[in-house]
Design a protein around this nucleic acid. Structure first.
Lengths: 158, 158
DNA sequence: TTTAATAGTTAACCATATTAACTATTTTAC
DNA sequence: GTAAAATAGTTAATATGGTTAACTATTAAA
């Protein structure tokens, strides 16, 4: 007999909420011909300051594939495939780093910039709707709790 | 230029946290020869009262495949495949509903019960570690915020 | 200056889930 | 009461999304 436990309820709830959010986002981005992962890459290249990866560490130079792999939690090989598709769509381009010739830097094309910009207002209103009923102070706490949890998990994983 | 926005930061943080939690859980359950989805089915059949599905609605009768599909957010066909594997592993069994012969009810075998019971103490301590540093009152708020968010998303999706 | 690490790519493959068509049964609507 | 629709589950084919392992090229470390 499994007992009621607050920690467990929270973690299962994070899991369920994320499943729903991803489903909702797939609907949103597929209307623009994107997969969820493609879209996540594009908002990284658009330097969305709300991404946990950018909240944790400031980032000056254009991103590399390996940094995307790190932020998305997938392999570099997978990123290569995703980037290939996005370059075929002319949404981003790669250029070589002049300091280190192993590295390739990524940036949005004007077409990519426009696409992301055109999605932004619907994205914002949709996001607001998902957090409707929470006060600003509560939202700030919510974010802090999530960040604490992420930090704990990362600490455990080493 | 994408601006800082609290709603967006929260939703991206939920997404990232869930990715990390799932990775952590895959490690945990794969040591017992389970996939993440197989394990989620097993805790449903073990009637884990921390599952959002059970928090929302009381459940008396043994579960059906279609209810699992609903709770997990996947198709019934997918559940059929997952159940086949779990029955091959002798972790659960199916029996026909005597009221409605379309339905099949699911329950853990003694082996399935034992497996889940044997995982419970490590699961609890791992969950506690992931929420370390939050007070009980904060955890209660955290859960409420997540539930509010889930409710909003479900309302939007219809 | 050899060795190890980093960055990226490619090809083969695997896991997971979906769609569509099907059977069986029960419910709804006329 | 019966025809039509809905529900539950299964199957086969397929799509998707990702991984692993082997490779090249380049740079950093010993």
């Amino acid at each position: 007999m499994i007992e009621k436990n607050l920690d467990t309820s929270i973690l299962l709830s994070i899991y369920e909420t994320a499943v729903l959010l991803i489903k909702k986002n797939i609907e949103f981005v597929s209307e623009r011909g994107l997969t969820n992962q493609q879209w996540v890459i594009l908002i990284h290249l658009a330097k969305d300051p709300n991404l946990p990866y950018f909240i944790r560490e400031k980032h000056d130079k254009p991103m590399m594939a390996s940094e995307l792999a790190d932020s998305l939690g997938v392999t570099r090989a997978n990123i290569t495939n995703l980037l290939t598709v996005l370059m075929e769509k002319k949404l981003l381009k790669q250029f070589e780093d002049d300091q280190d010739r192993r590295k390739k830097r990524l940036m949005l094309t004007p077409k990519g910039e426009k696409l992301i910009a055109s999605m932004q207002s619907e994205r914002l209103s949709s996001n607001a709707a998902m957090l409707k009923g929470l006060k600003n102070k509560e939202k700030a706490e919510f974010l802090r709790y999530l960040q604490k949890c992420t930090e704990n998990v990362q600490k455990i994983n080493g």
